[in-house]
Design a protein around this nucleic acid. Sequence first.
DNA 1: CGCATAGTTGGATGCTTGTCAAACAATGGA
DNA 2: TCCATTGTTTGACAAGCATCCAACTATGCG
Lengths: 102, 102
Amino acid sequence: MLFHPATEDIQLTEVLRALSDPIRLEIVALLTTAGELTCGDASVRLSVHKSTASHHFRILREAGVVRTTPRGRLKLLSVRHDDLDARFPGLLGSVVSATHAA
Amino acid sequence: MLFHPATEDIQLTEVLRALSDPIRLEIVALLTTAGELTCGDASVRLSVHKSTASHHFRILREAGVVRTTPRGRLKLLSVRHDDLDARFPGLLGSVVSATHAA
DNA sequence: CGCATAGTTGGATGCTTGTCAAACAATGGA
DNA sequence: TCCATTGTTTGACAAGCATCCAACTATGCG
């Protein structure tokens, strides 16, 4: 478990689909400014049930947008900026900028 | 009918959602290289029924990604490059580049 | 005026999705 | 070892979506 796609296996449509949900976009924005957050810390800032948040974390992870790193009994979330930029240059940056413009 | 959102009303999540479908991404790619296409010309290059293609044209149009211009009994499709770039700078460009990298 | 052409719309269907609640698993601390 | 904390999974449900076919609308041509 805790599947993460390899950088070269990241699919464009899956990334776009993952980013097409307001809550997931908010998660990416949170992580981009915070750098790293635990699932719990990210979850309390969202307006959905924790199981729903967990679901969104999984969508983002399996699309290759975020990385989930177990740390003790916590799990740290971070955006895979470098991998995404290597695969689809500029894409994530423009989406994050667009988030602020929205 | 033939609703087109104003540039400032284009929503990021709707654009991303519109672009998260392989067929719609293909439509955008076709239009980007061709400049303009009729619905029919675009439709025959896709592997779906013409009513399905029409459905996708509508999703793209209502999201603000494409413009539909009636021309006689035809309808011309084109990508709203300028509007999108004004609203979300660089976004569409990086998506189109990513399409080629995929 | 009719008729062919170009697209859209409605119905039907099966699949996917977002959401919550409750139960479950895993981990470190007391 | 036991327990509280953290996060995931399962089930259920409503909503949305992609797809096709058939019927419909609209427009220009003869």
